[in-house]
Design a protein around this nucleic acid. Structure first.
Lengths: 129, 129
DNA sequence: TGCAGATGCTCAGTATGGGTAGCAAGTTCC
DNA sequence: GGAACTTGCTACCCATACTGAGCATCTGCA
């Protein structure tokens, strides 16, 4: 589990650029759901959910909505994660955004030094040096 | 043309419940474009566009974006026409992470190992060992 | 030590999205 | 009456979204 077997060669997309799938999986685990539970709630087969989370397939709108519903997310949030530009007005109101970086910056339990350190670690991970 | 030959009997969907297709067709004609012109602009085949407009097929996100682009509409407008409720269920209590820890857990840019590591660092800082 | 249940994943098949080629009907020009 | 062009639509085909059944692994629990 959690092991990426081989990265299936892929067709053009730089291998591990699976934003949507990772996001869905993260949200599902956050909600403490198994694939089968989520499958039952969304009427999407657990097999397919697994593949979507691993980035092997690009789900349709219908499935995306079902997933959003099961996870109690807005479809917009999922669509943002799926590769769509939203073009119109970038974000504006877009509140929920909530990046990890922002969360760290806003965390009152961290001292300034700790904050800086944690941000450093995080950035080194995601390559936002 | 513009004549509906026979309403293809249909399979369950109440025949003329084709909101998205009608909208697209209306917008296209408003822009005084032929199917083939629009096909050229959007890189979607005229054949498929025809079927989408007639409600015989449900286009994918990718196609929807291409169409929106050709028609100079925002993708949102088209998505609204496609049957999507934006629902988001109840919202409010929704997950999506409020704490730093949740943000880290939900961050799609982190690998499982990185996530664990970062959480470890964070917890060591705030004493939530 | 077993077994039973849950987990995520894979394999094989079906349904549907989407493209290519070609059709019939309508214009315009000869 | 043609061609030569456009229009929208359809028949055929392939790629991919999606499902169902089953596998392998990891727990409990006797």
């Amino acid at each position: 589990m959690t092991a990426r077997p081989s990265e299936p060669a892929d067709s053009g997309w730089s291998a591990s650029m699976n934003v949507l799938g990772d996001f869905i999986r993260a949200q599902r685990q956050l909600a403490k759901m198994s694939l089968r539970e989520m499958a039952a709630m969304s009427n999407v087969s657990n097999a397919y959910l697994s593949q979507v989370e691993r980035g092997l397939h690009q789900p349709s709108l219908k499935v995306l909505q079902s997933i959003a519903d099961a996870l109690q997310l807005s479809t917009d949030q999922l669509l943002k994660q799926a590769g769509w530009s939203t073009s119109a007005g970038s974000d504006g109101a877009g509140p929920v955004a909530q990046s990890t970086e922002d969360a760290i910056k806003a965390d009152p339990r961290l001292s300034p030094e700790q904050r800086t350190a944690l941000l450093g670690v995080y950035r080194s991970f995601v390559g936002t040096a």
